[in-house]
Every structure is written in C-alpha cells, then in structure tokens.
C-alpha cells in the first residue's frame, strides 16, 4: 500500500524560491526513509507539504490513497492526527510537565481523560521516560526532550511519523538512542520519514535514502548510504 505518493509535485514560495521541482516518489506502508541533502535542498518543504502546512504549487500528493491537495481546510486537522511530527527543536511547552506535554496532544484532539491516563504512561514506557513524567522540559537532557517529542508524536499511534532533523541538536551517542527508538516505532508498522544531513546516522542504518539537491531528487536508493 502506498502511504505517501508525490505526483509531479512542485513548490514555489511567494518570494519565487523554487523549493521542489516536479517530484515523483512513492513511500510504502512500513518503510523507513531518509531524506538527505544539504540545507536548502527541499527536505523541510517536503515534510511541510505532507502535513499541509504549506500548499503545493503544482502536482498532487496522496496520503494513504487520499489526495490531500483537494482537502478542505477544515479537514486538515484530521490529516494531521494521522501524522506524527518530530522536530529538531522539540517544540515542548516549557510550563508543562512531560506528562502534561503529551496529554496536551490528546486533549486538543478531544480524547477523554481515561484514554489520556492510559495512553500517556504507555508511550512514556516506550520511550524510556516513565520515571520522568513529572519533570519539566528544562530539567531534562536534549536526548530526553527529544524522546518526549517522539512520545507526543506517537501517543496517538499515527500510521506516519515525520522527523525533521531530529538529531540535529544531539551528540552521536544520544542520537543513536533516538534512532533505535525510531527503528522500534518503525518495526511496529509505522511509516517513518526522516530528513537529516548526518552522514554517520544514515550510513549506520542502511535504509532507503532519497537524496535531494536544489529541489530535485538526484538519488533514490534502497539500503543506501549518505554519499554515493
């Protein structure tokens, strides 16, 4: 089953920056895909288009077979509930505890309290932060904060997980832990798409690599490495 499909997708920003040029690609359910390339190559735009944070200029994107370009703005929340997002800067709320940060993601989509009380500890166990659920983000290390971010993205069990440079602020050892966690999530059947420019991570994982440059796909390789 095709989880993410781009058909002739171009993105030109209002200031005439061409971010993506006529991209065609298919990502199947359960795949783990690296999007690599230098800054400005179009990696982040790629991710923003999938959650419809910005509209496509030309072409069509299908998520789980549905054309999301035709999606009305009031249906976008529904799309985003099926896609978890992880960021380089974690985007945690500093005045809330770990538990509350994750609970917040469930609250705002209207999950009842008993679901929150059951699911949050569960996902915290998965990311290894069960004993830190009452800590505030500033009391955690960078790696731990990223785990909270992953927990928040995954607590609703979305079929797709997008990660935009999730290890960008972390040291290699911590990054390795994050990658293991993402692998585990992928093993459960979640499609994971991760944008990165960290060579060692890509090389150690040996997963599908899509390399971008100037808005074009210049390489798409199964079990690839960072450089050719």
């Amino acid at each position: 089953m095709n989880m993410i499909e781009f058909r002739n997708v171009s993105k030109i920003y209002e200031n005439n920056t061409v971010a993506l040029k006529d991209i065609n690609l298919v990502i199947k359910k359960g795949e783990f895909v690296f999007i690599v390339g230098p800054s400005g190559s179009g990696k982040s735009t790629f991710i923003k288009l999938i959650i419809k944070e910005t509209p496509v200029t030309k072409g069509t994107i299908f998520i789980a077979g549905r054309n999301i370009c035709a999606l009305k703005s009031n249906k976008i929340p529904q799309l985003r509930r099926n896609i978890g997002c992880i960021f380089q800067d974690y985007k945690l709320l500093s005045d809330r505890t770990v538990f509350e940060n994750i609970a917040f993601a469930l609250e705002v989509i209207g999950k009842p309290n008993y679901v929150i009380k059951a699911q949050v500890p569960q996902v915290l166990k998965l990311v290894g932060l069960y004993n830190k659920m009452d800590s505030y983000p500033h009391q955690l290390s960078g790696g731990e904060q990223q785990r909270v971010c992953i927990a928040r993205a995954f607590v609703n069990r979305p079929p797709i997980l997008l990660a935009d440079e999730p290890t960008g602020n972390l040291d290699p050892a911590t990054s390795e832990g994050i990658m293991k966690l993402l692998s585990r999530i992928n093993l459960i059947g979640t499609t994971v798409v991760m944008a990165t420019h960290e060579k060692s991570i890509v090389n150690s994982m040996r997963r599908r690599v899509i390399e971008m440059e100037d808005g074009l796909i210049i390489r798409d390789q199964k079990r690839g490495v960072y450089g050719t």
Partner: peptide, 16 residues
Amino acid sequence: RKEIEVMKLVGATNWY
C-alpha cells in the same frame, strides 16, 4: 504562539 503551533501540528480543529 508555541502552544498554538503544537495544537495545530497535532491536529486540533480550528474551533478548538
């Protein structure tokens, strides 16, 4: 704004 950004990303409805 940070709270709102997170709300939007995890799929809160516009009215929420």
